[in-house]
C-alpha cells in the first residue's frame, strides 16, 4: 500500500450463484483509492459498479458471493473482519449512500430519529442532544434548514431534500470515505447540479475521500479526480478525468464519450455504440467488448486483454489501444 492510499482493493471476484450457473459480476477488480480523492466509477447497468461498491462494505447480498480478493483499509482486510468489527468499520470508516436512497427512509421516523438510530447502532456513548446538534450542523452543510428538517417525516420533504438529508445522515459518524451509488439518478437536473455543488463543498470542508458511481460519464466529469470505466465486471480503463474525456485509450470509453449528447458540439460527431450490453452468463471468449468494438482485431476475438499501464496513473485493458490513440483527441464543436 502506498503512503497516501486509504483503501486498496485487490483482485476482487464476485459471483452470483444461480440455478443456471455462476454469474461473474466482478472479475479480479483492483483499485487503489488515494486519501482525499474523488473517484468516479462509470459503467452501464450490469457492469459491476454496485457490486464493487457493496464489496467495499462487505454487503454483497445473496446469491452474490465474494469468491476471491482482499480489501485493505489501513492494516485491516475488511473481508476478514468479524461482524462486530465490521459494524465498527461500516458507517464509521466508510459510509454509503445507496441508489434511490431518497426512498430508503423509514416513513414513520422523523429525520432526527434517523440520526439517533444510526448513532445508537454504531456508538456506545452518546447523548441525543449531542447527536441532534451534530445533525443540525451536517444538515446545514447540505443546505437544509435543520429546525424544519429534523422534525419532519420523510414524506414532508421533496426527493432532492431527502437525498441531501441522507447525505448528511451518512456523515453523522465521521466516516473517512463516502461511497455514493448513483447519487442523483431519478432526480431532476437542477437538483442534480445542486447536489454536486454540495458534494464538492463537503469534499473540501471535510477532506472526504469519495467513490461515486454513475452510468452517465458527464455527471461525474465536473468533480471527479480520476475515473474508472467498468464493462462486464472489469475495469477497462482508469486514469485522470481530463485524459478520460479528451484522450481516452479504450474504445468503450471513447464510445461512451462520443455517445453522450451535449449542448455545444456538432451533433454529427455523436455516434451510438452498436449492439447491446453483454449477457454476463455468455461472455465472449476474447475481449468482452469485442462484439461491439469498431477497433476489434483478430486477437481480440480469442484472447482476453491484460491490463496495460500506459503510465503510472493510466491503465487500459485493450489489445488495440494504439489504434484508438491514433484516431486522435476527441474533437469538440
Amino acid at each position: 500500500m502506498k503512503v497516501n492510499d486509504i483503501l486498496k482493493i485487490e483482485d476482487i471476484t464476485v459471483e452470483f450463484i444461480l440455478d443456471s450457473g455462476n454469474l461473474r459480476a466482478l472479475n479480479k477488480v483492483s483499485l487503489d483509492v488515494k486519501q482525499g480523492e474523488i473517484i468516479g466509477l462509470v459503467g452501464e447497468s450490469g457492469s459491476g459498479k454496485t457490486t464493487l461498491t457493496s464489496s467495499i462494505l462487505n454487503i454483497v447480498s445473496r446469491p452474490g458471493k465474494i469468491m476471491n480478493g482482499e480489501i485493505w483499509y489501513g492494516n485491516k482486510n475488511i473481508l476478514e473482519l468479524d461482524i462486530n468489527r465490521l459494524n465498527q468499520f461500516r458507517w464509521k470508516e466508510v459510509s454509503m449512500v445507496f441508489q434511490a436512497a431518497q426512498n430508503a427512509m423509514n416513513p414513520i421516523l422523523t429525520i432526527q430519529d434517523h440520526f439517533i438510530e444510526t448513532v445508537a447502532a454504531h456508538e456506545k456513548n452518546y447523548s441525543e442532544e449531542e447527536v441532534a446538534n451534530k445533525a443540525a450542523k451536517l444538515l446545514g452543510y447540505v443546505r437544509l434548514n435543520p429546525e424544519r428538517v429534523l422534525k419532519s417525516y420523510p414524506h414532508e420533504l421533496s426527493g432532492g431534500m431527502r437525498q441531501r438529508a441522507i447525505i448528511a445522515l451518512s456523515l453523522i459518524t465521521d466516516p473517512k470515505i463516502l461511497i455514493l451509488d448513483e447519487p442523483t439518478t431519478a432526480l431532476d437536473v437542477i437538483t442534480q447540479a445542486y447536489i454536486f455543488e454540495i458534494l464538492k463543498e463537503l469534499h473540501k470542508k471535510l477532506n472526504l475521500t469519495m467513490i461515486m458511481s454513475t452510468h452517465d460519464v458527464s455527471v461525474v466529469g465536473s468533480m471527479a479526480d480520476r475515473i474508472a470505466v467498468m464493462y462486464a465486471g472489469e475495469i477497462v480503463e482508469i486514469t485522470d478525468v481530463f485524459t478520460i474525456f479528451n484522450n481516452p485509450h479504450h474504445p468503450y470509453t471513447r464510445g461512451l464519450i462520443m455517445a453522450t449528447p451535449s449542448l455545444t458540439d456538432d451533433l454529427n460527431n455523436r455516434k451510438a455504440i452498436k449492439g447491446n450490453p453483454p449477457n454476463l452468463m455468455e461472455l465472449p471468449k476474447g475481449c468482452n467488448f469485442a462484439p461491439r468494438c469498431e477497433y476489434c482485431i483478430a486477437k481480440c476475438l480469442d484472447t482476453k486483454p491484460e491490463a496495460t499501464m500506459i503510465n503510472e496513473n493510466h491503465m487500459v485493458r485493450c489489445h488495440n489501444y494504439e489504434e484508438v490513440i491514433a484516431r486522435g483527441h476527441i474533437t469538440k464543436s
Binding site: 445542486y194 460519464v217 458527464s218 466529469g221 474525456f245 455545444t264 469538440k332
Partner: peptide, 11 residues
C-alpha cells in the same frame, strides 16, 4: 445545470 461532455466547460 446540465452536465457538460466538454471537460473544460464542466470543470
Amino acid at each position: 445545470a446540465i452536465p457538460a461532455v466538454d471537460i473544460e466547460i464542466s470543470r
